[in-house]
Write a protein that binds this DNA or RNA. Structure first.
Length: 461
RNA sequence: GGCGACGUACCCAAGCGGUCUAAGGGAGCGGUCUGCAAAACCGUUAUUCACCGGUUCGAAUCCGGUCGUCGCCUCCA
C-alpha cells in the first residue's frame, strides 16, 4: 500500500509514511458543542471516517483523537441564553453529537477529550510561550501570541501577515492587544463569561480556541502527528495558529500531513449556521431519509471537491445502496456447490483508487462495474457458488470502508408486518386489487415491496 | 485588494498527455422477466469535456486569456 494524500502545507500529494511503522497518529478537529452539528460538519467527520477506515483496511493501526470544544464565545453565549451552566449545555450537545456519529456509522475516536478537561495543561503551555517571549499578557488578564516571534506564520494558509486585511472580525474583538493579527491564547475574565473561569498565574479567565488542540494532541499522541484533519475553513486561523503554537512549544515538525475537506454547499453557498441554510441529521431522519443515505451522500464525492447537497442526492444515494444490498441478497441465494463462472473481485482497483488521495468515486465505480458483471451472471445462473461466497466476502470488505451496506438493520413495525402478511394472503387468493392496494399504501410510507422467486422482500425507497 | 478552488451527458461524477468515438450512480425511453409491478438483465440518452487561443505527432488532461460559480483573508467543519 502506498497511500498518497494531499498535504495542505506543501499543496502536493505526499506518501503517508507513519512515524512509527504500522501505526498512524491521527488528530481530527471535532465540534464546538454549542448546538446540534449540521450535516456540513458531518461531511468532514465522514471524510475522516473514510480515511480512518481505509487506513485500517490497509492493515494499519490508527490512534485517533478528536477534540471537543466546550468553552468558547458561542458556548458561553448559548448557555447564557438558555439559562444553563456551560457544563449543562455542552454536555447536552456533546451527547447529541455522539448520537449522530453513531447513527452515521462513524467509528468512534480512541479519545474524545474536551477542552475544559485540559485547562491546567493549557495554562502550562501558555506559560512556556510567555517565558520564551513569544506571548504577552495585557491589562485585562488576557494572553496573546506574538505572531512576529514565529517567522513561518502564514505558511500553512499561504497568507502573508503584511497583506492580511484587518477586517470586521478583528475590529469586533474588544480585547486589548499590541498588534491586531496576534491571537488569543487566554481570554481574561469578563462578567459575561459567567461560570466560565479558570485560574491562571496572569489572571482568571478561559483558554483561547487554538491552544486546546496543541495541548491535547501532544498529550495523547506525542509531539509529532502523522495526520491532522479538519474542514478547509480551519486552515485559517485555527490550524495556522495551532501550528505556530505547537512549533514554538516543541521544535519538531508537529504534523506530517495536513488534510482538509471542502465545504458542503446548499444553493451555491456553503452550509453554515450563520447563513441559516443548514440541515441537521435528526430532521433528515424525521423526513424519512435513512442515515446510510446521508452517509453515502456525504461520502461519495471526493473530499476536496465542494458537494452540493439536495434531497434528490439523498434519494439517489439510497438507490445506490439498495443496489449493493440487492447484490448481497442475490449472492446469498446461490447454492454453495453451484457450477459457473468465477469473475475476479476488484480489490486491486478499489485499493488503487483509494490510494490515490481517497478517490472514492473511482473506487465506487470499480465496485459497481463488478456488481453489474455479477448481476448479469446471477440472472443467467452462471455464477459459481464459490464465487458467490467470495463476492459476498468482498462486498463485506468494501463495506468496512464504505459503511453503508451492512449496518443499521432496519426493522418494520407490527402494522407494516401485518399488512405484508395480508398482502401475501391476498396474492395466494389472486386478489390482485387488494395486493396492489397494500403495496401502494406501503410505498407511500417509503417501503418498497418486491416479489421475488423466493418470496416477497422489502426495502427502503 | 491578497490568496485559492472549481466548470465533463437531463442530474451527480471518474478521468492526472495516447488503450477516451470519455468509468460508475441516479433519471428517462424501448425490450426481456412478472398476475401487474419492482428488482435484475439487454438496448438507448456526450465524436464530446464552459469559451477562445497556444504547446505537442497527439490534449478533457499541459500553458495563456475570457466568462461563470464558490471559498478563505483572526475564533466557521
Amino acid at each position: 500500500m502506498t497511500l498518497k494524500l494531499y498535504n495542505t502545507l506543501s499543496r502536493r500529494l505526499e506518501t503517508l509514511e507513519p512515524i512509527e511503522p504500522g501505526v498512524v497518529r491521527l488528530y481530527t478537529c471535532g465540534p464546538t458543542v454549542y448546538d446540534t452539528a449540521h450535516i456540513g460538519n458531518f461531511r468532514t467527520f465522514i471524510f475522516e471516517d473514510l480515511l480512518k477506515r481505509y487506513l485500517k483496511y490497509s492493515g494499519l493501526k490508527v490512534r485517533h483523537v478528536m477534540n471537543v470544544t466546550d468553552v468558547d464565545d458561542r458556548t458561553i453565549e448559548r448557555a447564557a441564553e438558555e439559562g444553563q451552566t456551560l457544563a449543562e449545555l455542552t454536555g447536552r450537545y456533546c451527547a447529541q453529537f455522539q448520537q449522530d456519529l453513531s447513527a452515521l456509522n462513524i467509528l468512534p475516536a480512541d479519545h474524545l477529550p474536551r477542552a475544559t478537561e485540559f485547562i491546567p495543561q493549557m495554562v502550562a503551555g501558555i506559560q512556556t510561550l510567555i517565558d520564551q517571549g513569544q506571548a504577552y499578557t495585557t491589562d485585562d488578564g488576557s494572553v496573546y501570541f506574538n505572531i512576529s516571534s514565529y517567522p513561518e506564520y502564514g505558511r500553512l494558509a499561504r497568507l502573508n501577515p503584511e497583506q492580511m486585511v484587518v477586517g470586521e472580525r478583528v475590529a469586533a474583538d474588544d480585547y486589548a492587544k499590541e498588534e491586531p493579527r496576534d491571537f488569543a491564547l487566554w481570554k481574561g475574565y469578563k462578567p459575561s463569561d459567567r461560570d466560565s473561569r479558570w485560574p491562571a498565574p496572569w489572571g482568571e479567565g478561559r483558554p483561547g480556541w487554538h491552544i486546546e488542540c496543541s495541548i491535547m494532541s501532544t498529550h495523547f499522541l506525542g509531539e509529532q502527528l502523522d495526520i491532522h484533519c479538519g474542514g478547509v475553513d480551519n486552515i485559517f486561523p485555527h490550524h495556522e495558529n495551532e501550528l505556530a503554537q505547537s512549533r514554538c512549544l516543541h521544535a519538531g515538525p508537529f504534523v506530517n500531513l495536513w488534510l482538509h475537506s471542502e465545504h458542503l454547499i446548499v444553493d451555491g453557498r456553503k452550509m453554515s449556521k450563520s447563513l441559516g441554510n443548514f440541515y441537521i441529521l435528526p430532521d433528515l431522519l424525521e423526513k424519512g431519509f435513512s442515515p446510510e443515505a446521508v452517509r453515502y451522500t456525504l461520502l461519495s464525492t471526493h473530499y476536496r471537491k465542494k458537494l452540493n447537497f439536495t434531497f434528490d442526492r439523498l434519494q439517489e444515494s439510497q438507490q445506490a445502496i439498495n443496489r449493493l444490498r440487492e447484490l448481497a441478497r442475490r449472492l446469498e441465494e446461490v447454492p454453495a456447490g453451484h457450477k459457473g463462472m468465477a469473475p475476479a473481485v476488484p480489490d486491486a482497483a478499489v485499493a488503487a483508487a483509494l490510494d490515490d488521495d481517497l478517490n472514492i468515486a473511482g473506487a465506487l465505480g470499480a465496485i459497481f462495474a463488478w456488481a453489474h458483471e455479477l448481476f448479469g451472471l446471477l440472472d443467467r445462473e452462471r455464477l459459481s457458488g464459490a464465487s458467490a461466497g467470495e463476492g459476498l466476502a468482498a462486498l463485506g470488505r468494501y463495506d468496512e470502508i464504505l459503511g453503508v451496506v451492512f449496518f443499521s438493520p432496519s426493522t418494520l413495525d407490527e402494522e407494516v408486518t401485518a399488512l405484508i402478511a395480508e398482502r401475501e394472503a391476498a396474492r395466494q387468493n389472486e386478489d390482485w386489487a387488494r395486493a396492489d392496494e397494500i403495496r401502494e399504501q406501503l410505498q407511500q410510507r417509503g417501503i418498497l415491496l418486491e416479489d421475488t422467486s423466493t418470496g416477497t422482500i422489502w426495502k427502503r425507497g
